[in-house]
Design a protein around this nucleic acid. Sequence first.
DNA 1: CTCAAATGTCTATTGATATAGACAACCATA
DNA 2: TATGGTTGTCTATATCAATAGACATTTGAG
Lengths: 245, 245
Amino acid sequence: MAGLKQVQRQTGVALWRQIADRIREAIGSGAYDETGMVPPETVLALQFGVNRHTVRSALAALAQEGIVRAVQGRGTLIERKERLNFPITRRTRFTAGIGDQARETRALLLDEVKEEASADVARWLKLKPGEEVIRLETLRHADRRPVSKATSWFPAGRFAGIGAAYRKHESITKAFAELGLSDYVRATTEVTAAHANTADLADLELTPGAILLIAKAMNTDLDGVPVQYSISRFAADRVQFTIEN
Amino acid sequence: MAGLKQVQRQTGVALWRQIADRIREAIGSGAYDETGMVPPETVLALQFGVNRHTVRSALAALAQEGIVRAVQGRGTLIERKERLNFPITRRTRFTAGIGDQARETRALLLDEVKEEASADVARWLKLKPGEEVIRLETLRHADRRPVSKATSWFPAGRFAGIGAAYRKHESITKAFAELGLSDYVRATTEVTAAHANTADLADLELTPGAILLIAKAMNTDLDGVPVQYSISRFAADRVQFTIEN
DNA sequence: CTCAAATGTCTATTGATATAGACAACCATA
DNA sequence: TATGGTTGTCTATATCAATAGACATTTGAG
């Protein structure tokens, strides 16, 4: 019973995609660690109760993601199965949190815009709607794989030049330091999940139907004054959050 | 630009399902609060760049979920739009956390089993693998809608009878109290996201392709001794987590 | 009452998804 | 080198998903 994986028809989600999701999960949970390979296509087809061609569509999608690699005559090898851990604490920092789990981390600044605070942004940063804020669009990689895409807002008066500082240091913590803020704390984090939209799919190198973990976070200085509000979108199959209380 | 919602073809996820997901999100974020109605089908079709029939399939799915109700001649009314907030803190409790946002909460005990701790369970509860634990399968409702399904493990020696106590009080906190544990704290929470499997779909009354927020949590007594390890699966479109540091 | 706006229903057609079967190509091993 | 097991490719067919158009039905407002 444990090995029986069910898929459903006429649900608006193609069978090959459902099967790809289940195999991806099984790989992540170490189900095939003994062999380092996915079971043969004919076996999977039998397990899922579908045609072999349908399984092949699923495996093709996983190969496209770089998770497996099919070798004619041998089988389908597992290439990757990691899931990064992202701790969320009062002292949450992206680079330090991910850094020890990846050989190389990168942080790219995609865009920097000065704009007026929307109602939502104003509420989080405790500003008046319409006050000026700086918005940064950033993309973070670990070992050359995109991990998260984030939109961050900062009070414009206090943090002029944060875009340049971020581009230079590839770190919010160091950018803050250059602008005279030596320490800050994570005040609030809201976590939700949703399907990825087209822009996120492209930037995070995901396939449609992929899931995102979404974290809305607010950082303050040591006096409790908001310094950053951000919405980060993580590829759900590459990360998990850990909350230590 | 803000009103432009994108959908993709040939991705294994039907357009009507992608559109249903986006409309559900828009409803949840209050986008249609002014009118209490979804825009007309022809308008939605134009916005998403699809045929009106495709939009109708999406709305039919949402109607099936009880989120909207179409009325001929008038429009499509929004029936429900809540997203419960679930705070995760050192003092996280399900009933108290959700209680003030719902008129009625229920907690059902689906199953109670005494078993030997697996490696994973033993590690979290700081037991030796093979020591006896009690496993509870529980289902939680808010206002008659299923919110989460959880599997919990407790050290068997210390908490014999917790199943009966939980069934009586419909609360872990009260069940603990009856067994002599007056207070406990949330030590660790790990959050991930994944697609729902068939069993979860049925119990949580979801449609295939739905997303789950998954929280692995460990509670300890005031001396730091683990008292509960649980894996909770939440319907992602019905809840969000808030982490206050 | 009349009309505009909205949802409901029907038919027809095209492309994507899934099944079915057959066979080729390749690999490891006996 | 022969063989069994595996992935790769091709053809054919049935069903689902999506488009297109037309018209009916219901509602609310003028």
